[in-house]
Simulated assay, not measured.
Amino acid sequence: MQTARQVRNLPSLTGLRFAAMLPVFLVHVALEGVFSADSANWGFLNGLGTSGYVAVSSFFVLSGFVITWSFDQRDTLRGFYRRRLARVLPNHVVVFGIALVLMAAFRMAVGLPNALAQLLLVQAWIPDYSYLDFGNSVSWSLSVDVVFYGLFPAIILVARKIRPRHLWYWAGVAVLGVVLVSTVAMFLLPAEPVRPLGEISESQYWLIHFLPVSRLFECLLGVVMARIVQNGQWIGLRPLWAFALLLAAYAITFLVPYPYRLTSVTVAPLGLLIASLAVADVEGRRTLLSYRFLVRLGELSYAFYLLHNLVVRFGHLAFGGEEVDGETVGRTWSTPVALALIVAAFALSLGAAWLLHTFVEKPAVRRWSKAGPRPPAEPAVAPAGATAS
């Protein structure tokens, strides 16, 4: 059997990226309120529950896992940062420019401080929703990514020193960190003003959902789970059972206080699911997510993520709108027409993602991700199913 080090690509995790994108896309569509019947709009949004938050959480756990998995300790700091930024920044800058053009076309105010904060990816540090909702609002998550990338060389040095038999304890510490953030938000931050679409205040929501330091615990969980697999400490849980645990945890989210619904209850099962899928790939077992079609969609997921909300938001406004309480609100349609437009928005987002991935992301990675000469590799780590001493 191949060792974890020898298996560089994890197709199931690539497929998982796109599977996680679907609830994010649907939540942003639901927030547009495209159905004429209010009952349909609220039913759509309520039916999605907290699935969008689970999906976003999975992105951060995946980020920690995949970067740890692909990390080569022979790499230089300069090489590591160059490759990370080559994957993130070109797409971000291009889509940021597209967002500004669209805002100007629809006569929206473009504040210079807001624009600079988003361009520099520091908007998530600012507890002001005029910054977080500006332009291509989904790019707030890149604020977390760049912080994690900046700290990763130090994080991996520490993670590699953890004894294999202690790794599960540190996974628990990362999960407790996520829970601690929700607890601090619930008991130490003001409960007012409450957000329109959630039983949580704006400051509580910012701390749990946006603040990069808070989201680092999910990235750290991904790091530790990758080390668990690499060091042969996996417990043998199969993806189907891990997914069942995630579904059970998701059901529990409806029974706990709102601050704990966003990430706290589901983060541990997410870590287990991601690790179980990676082990399946290492052992050569096919999963539903490892089929080529889903893997290909997963390769487009970053570009799709950056573009989809612009397509949904400005595509909606392109059909016309009206002023409601000082905000432009798009048209609504009958259920069949609205469903057809949602499918069209998905297809347009996917097509735009292919263009961005093909003509911006891939050329940038080829241009700036080339590694220089490296010393000989270290011996491979233990197989995923082995028991480390």
Rank of each mutant, 00 (worst) to 15 (best):
Leu31Pro: 01
Gly49Leu: 07
Leu45Ile: 12
Phe35Ala: 00
Ser130Pro: 04
Thr287Tyr: 11
Pro153Glu: 00
Glu361Pro: 08
Glu299Arg: 09
Phe71Glu: 05
Arg366Val: 06
Gln118Leu: 12
Ile126Phe: 04
Arg215Asn: 12
Gly172Ser: 00
Thr183Ile: 15
Pro257Arg: 00
Ile342Ala: 05
Gly284Gln: 09
Ala380Pro: 07
Ser141Cys: 13
Ala340Glu: 13
Ser58Trp: 14
Gly172His: 00
Val337Cys: 00
Gly298Phe: 06
Thr14His: 05
Leu237Val: 12
Gly271Phe: 02
Val265Arg: 04
Leu288Asn: 02
Ala377Gly: 15
Pro90Phe: 08
His92Ile: 10
Gln204Pro: 14
Phe304Lys: 04
Pro127Met: 10
Gly49Cys: 09
Gly47Cys: 08
Phe35Arg: 00
Leu270Thr: 05
Ala40Leu: 15
Pro373Tyr: 05
Val138Tyr: 12
Ala30Lys: 06
Pro193Ser: 02
Ala268Ile: 07
Arg74Val: 05
Ser290Phe: 01
Arg165Glu: 13
Ala248His: 09
Ala86Thr: 01
Arg374Lys: 14
Thr266Asp: 10
Phe243Ile: 03
Ser290Asn: 06
Leu273His: 06
Leu157Lys: 10
Val95Ala: 00
His316Trp: 14
Ala171Val: 03
Arg367Pro: 10
Arg238Val: 14
Leu180Arg: 04
Ala244Ser: 12
Leu300Tyr: 12
Leu13Gln: 04
Val93Arg: 02
Thr335Asp: 08
Ser214Gly: 07
Leu31Trp: 14
Arg83Met: 09
Phe60Leu: 14
Arg374Gln: 15
Phe96Pro: 04
